[in-house]
């Protein structure tokens, strides 16, 4: 009897140690990576670096056009993917009957989430750039990235809606509310924190993508910040990729500095996600 207890305790603490090691590996690697990047790039970041155009001299080169491109891409991708993704999630969870068709839809959305991003790039090149004649513009780029992150948003929306207790819906119906009224006043507010978390994490992924945008025709040298959605553009991951493949050491420093700025944007977005979630959870008063 006591042997069994001992073995179980041993297994228990063994698993605990494994879990801690697993967590630490990720954290330590992240710390090493960030430390390395900070050492290489921190001294390079100043106002000039943020406001300068690309140049063949690493010390004169800046991130301005790529950063503006990334911000445009981010906003437009959010505007496009937000209503479509959430709409699809609500439909699948609240309206769709459990038929064979909805099953097929469901499986395909999960499959789409696993498609490599370069494939979306090829799709975007054919559909948006060539068939719809949007050109290698911000619009084509953000439509492509919106497609890329839609499955993530849809899945996140569905999961958050699933977490809303059925009793809330029943109560709403019992008070005479219609289906849309129930969704609008109960389901969406209750699940909004989770939905926003999903949207923002998906956008964080989009802002780090280079491959699909290179395929769509994003550029490496653009001497102007985009002004309209039809303008040519570059984004930060492409600028980083370009700098890293240059032999001069100064460009490597530039790349590290650009990575720091990109990380700040990503971390900032994650912080917003956390804030939104906690704020919305407080507002739910049932």
């Amino acid at each position: 009897m006591s042997r069994i207890i001992k073995i179980n305790r041993l297994k228990n603490s063994g698993f605990q140690v494994l879990g801690i090691i697993g967590t630490l590996i990720g954290l330590v690697l992240l710390a090493i990576f960030i430390g390395d990047i900070l050492m290489d790039g921190l001294t390079r970041i100043d106002w000039d670096f943020i406001t300068s155009l690309p140049s063949r001299f690493p010390e004169k080169s800046g991130i301005f056009t790529a950063m503006m491109g990334s911000i445009w891409i981010l906003l437009m991708t959010a505007i496009i993917s937000f209503p479509i993704g959430i709409g699809a999630g609500i439909y699948l969870e609240e309206y769709a009957t459990k038929s064979r068709l909805s099953k097929i839809l469901e499986i395909n959305i999960s499959n789409l989430a696993g498609v490599p991003s370069i494939i979306y790039g090829l799709l975007g090149l054919e559909v948006f750039v060539r068939i719809l004649h949007f050109g290698s513009s911000l619009l084509s780029g953000s439509l492509t990235l919106a497609l890329l992150i839609l499955p993530i948003i849809i899945v996140a929306t569905r999961e958050s809606i699933k977490a809303v207790p059925q009793s809330i819906r029943d109560a709403s119906y019992a008070l005479g509310a219609s289906k849309w009224q129930t969704i609008q006043h109960q389901v969406i507010p209750a699940s909004f924190g989770g939905i926003m978390t999903g949207v923002i994490l998906a956008l964080s992924r989009a802002v780090g993508e280079a491959a699909p945008l290179i395929v769509v025709g994003a550029l490496a040298y653009v001497p102007f910040a985009p002004k309209t959605p039809m303008d040519d553009f570059s984004v930060m991951p492409i600028q980083i990729f370009n700098w890293i493949s240059r032999p001069q050491h100064g460009f490597i420093e530039n790349a590290a500095a650009a990575i720091i700025i990109l990380l700040i944007i990503t971390f900032g977005m994650n912080a917003i996600a956390i804030y939104l979630r906690s704020r919305w959870q407080k507002r739910i008063s049932w």
């Binding site: 155009l53 690309p54 063949r56 653009v222 001497p223």
Partner: peptide, 18 residues
């Protein structure tokens, strides 16, 4: 392209790396 900016500043040269 960088040097050309000072030559003809109203022309936008864009370069991709496909």
């Amino acid at each position: 392209a960088e040097e050309f900016r000072s030559e003809m500043s109203n022309v936008r040269v864009t370069i991709g790396i496909s």
